[in-house]
């Protein structure tokens, strides 16, 4: 009979799936204790250390965060109950009631707990998803083309390539847009156009109840809000810097997310109009051209 030494037993235990999963569950419980002390005392402190309880604890944690108004991405099998976080402790998905399944789910939660981000709403700069099918983001194409020489140019790709790609995606019945898009090449704004000032002017321009300033700022990731200016892809490139669950201000995040969603809505609604109706495309180009002309004939205003 081979007897493991005590140290070997400890090493094996620490490297086991159960250990890792238990530590993830305890981390969630500790965050609850730090951030939601009343809830922890009432519902969590007395729970026993079953794997399924740890899954419930993570569900309760994210439910409480959502109850603060923070919008979280959908992740894994976790179910949230923001209107009744205590229920989330018990609301396990049916397939996680067995210990081994719960342990596996906890392991998948590791990244969620350690490098976690609420939803960001910024536009990706990946060309294909933006213009795939030629049915959307013509507002963005329009703005990128006009501002190609300015300091706000995203520079994600040669704008001519972007235009060529968007044109290639347009279906036959949408050819009314094609000549408009081609014409944009000759309407580019001067490189020294003060874009901040232009955006301030456009903040005053309401078209069909939509604020052009907000739509333009969103399109160029110039809102000043992380949640409106960053896309998931950019966050990924930045290394998914982790959120500090112990000190993070959920109310501030919720407020910034709400503000970012407002920018997104103005962009999204205007893009739907621009991308569907050639006459709207023309009207928006005209409004932008007027604003640029006003800017070139008047001295800049203070911020």
């Amino acid at each position: 009979m081979i007897r493991r030494s005590r140290d070997e037993q400890t090493r094996a235990a620490v490297r086991s799936e159960q250990w890792e999963a238990t530590m993830i569950g305890l981390r969630a419980a500790d965050i609850l204790r730090q951030r939601f002390a009343d809830f922890y005392a009432a519902h969590v402190a007395g729970l026993k250390s079953h794997p399924s309880h740890f899954v419930g604890i993570i569900q309760a944690l994210f439910s409480l965060v959502e109850a603060c108004g923070v919008e979280l991405p959908d992740f894994l099998d976790i179910r949230t109950e923001p209107h009744n976080p205590a229920a989330a402790l018990l609301a396990l998905p049916a397939h996680l009631t067995r210990d081994e399944d719960a342990l596996a789910a906890l392991d998948e939660c590791r990244w969620t707990l350690e490098a976690f981000h609420p939803i960001v709403y910024g536009l990706t700069h990946e060309i294909e998803p933006l213009f795939d099918g030629g049915r959307q983001n013509l507002l963005l194409l329009l703005l990128w083309a006009l501002a190609d020489q300015t300091t706000w140019s995203p520079g994600a790709a040669d704008i001519q390539d972007v235009i060529d790609y968007a044109l290639s995606e347009l279906s036959a019945e949408r050819q009314a847009f094609a000549e408009r898009i081609v014409r944009l090449r000759d309407q580019r704004w001067p490189g020294d156009l003060p874009m901040d000032e232009l955006a301030r002017q456009l903040d005053q321009v309401i078209y069909r109840e939509l604020n052009l300033g907000k739509a333009v700022r969103y399109a160029f990731a110039a809102t000043g809000l992380h949640f409106a200016d960053l896309s998931l892809e950019e966050l990924d490139e930045m290394g998914w810097t982790g959120m500090d669950w112990y000190s993070v201000d959920f109310a501030t995040i919720a407020a910034e997310q709400a503000e970012a969603r407002d920018f997104l809505q103005h962009y999204y609604d205007l893009d739907n109009l621009v991308s569907a109706q050639p006459e709207v495309f023309d009207e928006v180009v005209a409004l932008l051209t007027e604003a640029v002309a006003r800017l070139e004939t008047s001295p800049p205003t203070s911020a």
Binding site: G224, T241, M243, T252, E256
Partner: peptide
């Protein structure tokens, strides 16, 4: 000691508005 602690050493997302924890 853990992945989380290593991540804590990475530069934070530059904040225009101060957000604790970023």
């Amino acid at each position: 000691r853990s992945l989380c602690e290593r991540l804590n050493d990475l530069p934070a997302i530059p904040a225009i508005h101060a957000i604790d924890g970023w």
